[in-house]
Design a protein around this nucleic acid. Structure first.
Ligand SMILES: [Zn+2]
Ligand SMILES: [Zn+2]
Ligand SMILES: [Zn+2]
Ligand SMILES: [Zn+2]
Lengths: 132, 132
DNA sequence: ATAACAAACGTTATATTATAACACTATGAT
DNA sequence: ATCATAGTGTTATAATATAACGTTTGTTAT
């Protein structure tokens, strides 16, 4: 369930900047963007990022070490995430496909592992870049 | 198709160490392990890793910045990878499930993106850790 | 065989990403 | 009021990765 949640000052500053961004942001680029607001150190960014991820408000794109706002209802607190990533223009899009999500959530490894969470990243060319 | 391929000296050294390892290795841990063999700089490791990934002999576990040997037939040169990762003991297992792989390879994003490659990482507790 | 090219190498320096550690400050519950 | 918890600010440092440069080695074409 998506809970309405209040965030601390730094958390809200970081969330705002990520939500406004058109694409994934890197931690240090966030940092440079918020120095005017009195945030001076990477720690402050990373701490906020941690909480926001935990809350499902943002996701980390692992292959890019970058962060995007969640486009769904907080992705059941980040338990099941999927992204499409353009290898040319680097645009990232969160995939919300119920079938895909169910399929993967039900997927069971032969070795008897019980999954709590997954992250899927697709790479290719977006529509724009494909026709260039 | 899995091609028989020859690797250069450094590439082979790095491949050997990754193949012998029981779990994922980090670049700098590889570096420390091969200094006796005359490799002194991170560049040398990263260059070898790049080639080995390109050849599909190893994969990068993005969420861990670590590298594992491919357990399949070089995963069609790393176009479709899936892993299960234990959050407790950190063991990583490459998943080779034809159905899963086909399902994801066929998956088509509404936005019209054409995928060239995907990487999927499942997290949870392995059999051992589950019963602890 | 040798010229030309590409791939791999070695090295130094530096950039980028992320965490440790510590003291301080708000917030909220009992 | 006191206690616990979460958040803050700061300095320092660790861990991961790439840039740039010149040299060497391996391959291919003539
Ligand atoms: Zn989401
Ligand atoms: Zn694109
Ligand atoms: Zn593989
Ligand atoms: Zn385990």
């Amino acid at each position: 369930m998506a809970q309405t949640q209040t965030f601390s000052k730094n958390q809200q500053i970081v969330l705002d900047i990520i939500e406004k961004a058109k694409g994934p942001l890197k931690a240090y680029s966030i940092l440079f963007n918020v120095q005017k607001k009195g945030i001076n150190a990477p720690q402050q960014i990373y701490r906020a990022l941690d909480k926001l991820i935990e809350a499902g408000k943002i996701h980390k794109i692992e292959s890019k070490n970058a962060f995007v706002a969640c486009k769904n209802s907080n992705c059941e607190v980040s338990k099941a995430t999927a992204f499409s990533i353009c290898e040319s223009c680097e645009i990232v899009d969160e995939i919300s496909d119920t079938k895909l999500s169910k399929y993967l959530s039900k997927f069971n490894h032969k070795k008897g592992m019980k999954f709590r969470r997954f992250n899927l990243e697709f790479f290719g060319l977006c529509k724009k870049c494909k026709t260039k």
